[in-house]
Each structure stands twice: as structure tokens, then as C-alpha cells.
């Protein structure tokens, strides 16, 4: 698909809103508003947003662990306030406030979140079976990290999506760290994309800091899936700007990651890079992008107030939720 100006600005907006929501959660942890833990997705915005923004209604976006799926949720149309409220244990959260940190909205194509790394592989397989049965051309874009690529669930799900030719795009966010375990020591093939060929599907590598590159590659894979040509794997090389979990340290193996290296990663901030390109290529003026930034900040401020004024999760509702 060719991205028009509005599409490009939408990508920018979604990335900025994702970052600001992420920042608000981190701030909430420091100030005690947030009742759960958080695995910040800062640095991943281009992949989180780029792979989902141009999906259509009926398509599923299955988030991995990082960022608790904030980017995918926002790109699918979830209001940040619902994400924030959920993390603050409020009844106005997208899961009514007792999940701690989950994101789900079936209307928007968010099937639910799970914190166990690699759990999403077989669930994605099932969503893919459903999409194929529906016959409406819907697809699943399913995120996982280099860490999850160590799970056996990957093998079973990759194999079965391929043999059944299911409309699935596997999207690997390779940020080179699984908690603290470096991918260089944990991923035998180095490029996760190399795994694809063993499963008879294409595997490609793109720059995960370049939101247009991610969107372009994923949408090609999506069109392929819609056409009935089966699954593919898009590996996005990216960086995790923050520790595995808030409050932790930036560690690789058991040693601190050097400050210069973190600074080098941060110099590839996908939002800053995209903003620069939009201006250089004459697509948007500074003032216009500033307005998007300002609107996002305002939306988060309003959302924070909304969350603060929201009631806590309803115990009765929770206890009535075990069975349908």
C-alpha cells in the first residue's frame, strides 16, 4: 500500500500517543497511581504501531508481552484512558480494573493479553483458524520477541499456521534482550527470520526503528495472508530503551549495559527519526507535529484526571466474571 500524508501523520500520532501513555504509566508507578508492574515498550513504538495502524476492522492484533500491548491497542483504536485506568485498578479500565495490566477489546480486534511469554503462539494459531473459517479475508498480526522465540510453542504454531495456510503475520520484535539474556547467546540463528524457511514461509528482516518500513513490510505480508497465501514472518530489529520491568536495571547477562551503548540505542528513537523525516521530506511542518504532540499530551492529561476520578474495580462484577 502506498502511504498518503494522512496515513503518515496517523503513524506519527499513534507513536506519540503510545509513548505518552507509556510515560504516564511509569510516572504512575513512581507516584503510586499504578497498582501493577510495567514492562515499558519505549523504543518499540515503530513496530508496535507500524504493524497495526493499517489493519482493518475484523483483523486481530495479538500483542506480545512488551509494553503490555499499549502501541497495538492504541493503533487499533483503544482510548489511552482505558489502558491507564486498567493499570490503576479502576472500573473504567478496558478489563474493568481487576486484571492489573491486561488489554482486551473484541470489537477492536484485541483478543486479550497474557503475560506468559510465548503463550500467544498457539492462541494466534486459533485466531488464524477462525479467520480462515470466517472467509472474510481477515488476518492476525501476532507480536513476539526474541525471548519468546525460545519457546516450543513457536514451533508448533509456526508449523501449523503454515500447513493450514492460515492468514497470520508473525511479527518478531527483536530487541536483543530477553529480560537480561542477550539474544546473541540465546538465539542460535541470530536472525529470528531465518526460522521461517524451515516452516515453508517467507521471513524478512526490517529496521524496527523505521515505522514506515515496518508498516510497508507488514502490510505486504497482510495482503499476502488475505489472498490466501499463508503466514509469513517479519522480524523487526529494535531496541528496548528501558529495563525489562520498571524499577529494574539495564543489564545484559549479569553486567550493566554501558551508558554509551544505551545512548546509542536512544539515538535511534523511532519517534524522533520519523519526525525528522516528515519535516525533511516536506510532509509536515514543525508546528503541525508540535500540535500532534500537544494534543497527545492533553489527551493523556485528561485521561489521568478521568482515571483519578474513576471508581475502583467492582468486586461484585469481578466475582461474577469467572464463568459466562
Amino acid at each position: 500500500m502506498k502511504l498518503e500524508r494522512d496515513d503518515l501523520l496517523k503513524l506519527y500520532r499513534n507513536m506519540v500517543l503510545t509513548r505518552k501513555t507509556d510515560e504516564s504509566i511509569i510516572d504512575g508507578i513512581k507516584t503510586g497511581r499504578v497498582v501493577s508492574f510495567f514492562h515499558s515498550g519505549q523504543g518499540h513504538e515503530a513496530t508496535d504501531v507500524g504493524g497495526v495502524t493499517f489493519l482493518r476492522k475484523g483483523d486481530w492484533a495479538m500483542a506480545g508481552v512488551r509494553g503490555h500491548g499499549v502501541g497495538q491497542a492504541i493503533a487499533k483504536g483503544l482510548a489511552p484512558r482505558e489502558f491507564l485506568a486498567e493499570h490503576c485498578g479502576k472500573a473504567t479500565g478496558c478489563c474493568f480494573g481487576w486484571s492489573g495490566f491486561h488489554t482486551a477489546n473484541l470489537e477492536l480486534g484485541l483478543p486479550g493479553y497474557w503475560g506468559t511469554v510465548g503463550t500467544t503462539f498457539p492462541i494466534t494459531l486459533g485466531l488464524g483458524i477462525a479467520c480462515k473459517k470466517d472467509g472474510k479475508g481477515n488476518v492476525v498480526v501476532s507480536y513476539f520477541g526474541d525471548g519468546a522465540s525460545g519457546r516450543g510453542t513457536l514451533h508448533e504454531a509456526f508449523n501449523m499456521t503454515s500447513i493450514y495456510k492460515l492468514p497470520v503475520v508473525w511479527l518478531c520484535e527483536n530487541n536483543m534482550l530477553a529480560i537480561n539474556m542477550p539474544a546473541s547467546e540465546a538465539v542460535a540463528s541470530k536472525d529470528v527470520a531465518d526460522l521461517a524457511y524451515g516452516y515453508n514461509m517467507p521471513g524478512v528482516v526490517v529496521d524496527g526503528q523505521d515505522v514506515v518500513a515496518v508498516a510497508e513490510a507488514v502490510m505486504i505480508a497482510v495482503e499476502r495472508a488475505r489472498a490466501g497465501d499463508g503466514p509469513s514472518l517479519v522480524e523487526c530489529k529494535t531496541f528496548r530503551f528501558r529495563p525489562h520491568s520498571e524499577g529494574g536495571k539495564m543489564i545484559r547477562g549479569y553486567q550493566p549495559i554501558p551508558e554509551e551503548e544505551i545512548a546509542e540505542w536512544r539515538s535511534k528513537d523511532p519517534i524522533v527519526l520519523f519526525r525528522k523525516k516528515l519535516i525533511e521530506q516536506g510532509i509536515a511542518a514543525n508546528v503541525e507535529l508540535d500540535k500532534i504532540d500537544g494534543d497527545a499530551a492533553a489527551e493523556i492529561a485528561v485521561a489521568e484526571k478521568f482515571v483519578a476520578e474513576s471508581p475502583l474495580a467492582d468486586p461484585e462484577r469481578m466475582f461474577n466474571s469467572l464463568y459466562a
Binding site: F121, L125, G126, I129, N159
Partner: peptide, 24 residues
């Protein structure tokens, strides 16, 4: 649907398909 020997995928796929409205 016949499957390879993949219990994890069988059991987990049921969850995905059920979320999407099927009754595996």
C-alpha cells in the same frame, strides 16, 4: 481438523478460535 503431534498448539488454538466465536 487433523493435526500434527502438537498438543500445545491444539489446546491453545482452541482458546484463540473460541475468542473469535468458534466452539472447538
Amino acid at each position: 481438523i487433523d493435526t500434527p503431534i502438537s498438543e500445545t498448539a491444539i489446546a491453545g488454538s482452541c482458546l484463540g478460535a473460541a475468542i473469535a466465536g468458534y466452539r472447538p
